[in-house]
Design a binder for these strands. Sequence first.
DNA 1: CCTAATGTCTCTAGCAACTATAGCTTCAAG
DNA 2: CTTGAAGCTATAGTTGCTAGAGACATTAGG
Lengths: 146, 146
Amino acid sequence: MLTIGKLGEAAGVKVPTIRYYEQIGLLPEAERSSGNQRLYGRKAMERLAFIRHARDLGFTLEAIRDLLSLSDKPDQSCAAADAIAKAQLAEVESRLARLTALKSELERMVVQCAGGKIADCRVIEVLGDHSLCATDHRHPETEATQ
Amino acid sequence: MLTIGKLGEAAGVKVPTIRYYEQIGLLPEAERSSGNQRLYGRKAMERLAFIRHARDLGFTLEAIRDLLSLSDKPDQSCAAADAIAKAQLAEVESRLARLTALKSELERMVVQCAGGKIADCRVIEVLGDHSLCATDHRHPETEATQ
DNA sequence: CCTAATGTCTCTAGCAACTATAGCTTCAAG
DNA sequence: CTTGAAGCTATAGTTGCTAGAGACATTAGG
Ligand SMILES: [Zn+2]
Ligand SMILES: [Zn+2]
Ligand SMILES: [Zn+2]
Ligand SMILES: [Zn+2]
């Protein structure tokens, strides 16, 4: 059995984060030692590694909650899990598209500035006027999933 | 003079957001009508448009605060403004790199799943085991969400 | 065995950048 | 003149943690 510190070290998750996951019900309540300290076995370790990896892939805790509960039902169809992954892929693709536009606008700004005074700074000028931009990079709002 | 609603409409910013910007000192306290309602002129409009555009380009409110105070000093060198823009570009590039890795991992997961039961689902399997990933997509130390 | 240094416990508050709600007042149209 | 939209303040909630305070537990060294 691992203490919370060892578990965190093993899984690459900080101790307060583990307690937070327990608090929001993403991890089950841990066993306790005689001195009231949390103790974890292999199952908890695997569950935490799953969460960590999914977080690293950008899934929200809400999506991870669903994925975890699906993974507890091995005989069910995986369609729901695949749908969550596909939604996450779509989300990543849309952020990628937006960030690509942002990058090109920022590059333009930076390159075009001749480095004189604020009054002539292209950075300040472009920030004040989107019509100087080459792309439509505006923030898409009202999105379905995240 | 515009009411807060008209200003928000004109600048593409929600009303509570404008009040929030005032509260945190990003916008100056607005003039008030006899009935205590906020009134805005062209200057406030331009300032809000600047903020909105910079937010759309991913700058933090803290960076925008600095950019605004620089833009109020037209005779100063623009080096500081350019540095902020370059830092933002670097930030965007690093996010882009990470998202690109994420995208390819998610694509792999989704493509490899044959669509059977959870027990055989590649999505669930990969989420539980990073060593099945082709890239190192792990979370770098600090990331601002966006 | 005692002590000091960690580690862990609970609880609360804070971060970014808003968004939502409640319970008012004011304004503009009909 | 009435009604409904828009405005006001103040507070709390969102996401995914992170940082502190103050108390208890465990462990390594002398
Ligand atoms: Zn410049
Ligand atoms: Zn623009
Ligand atoms: Zn599957
Ligand atoms: Zn991985």
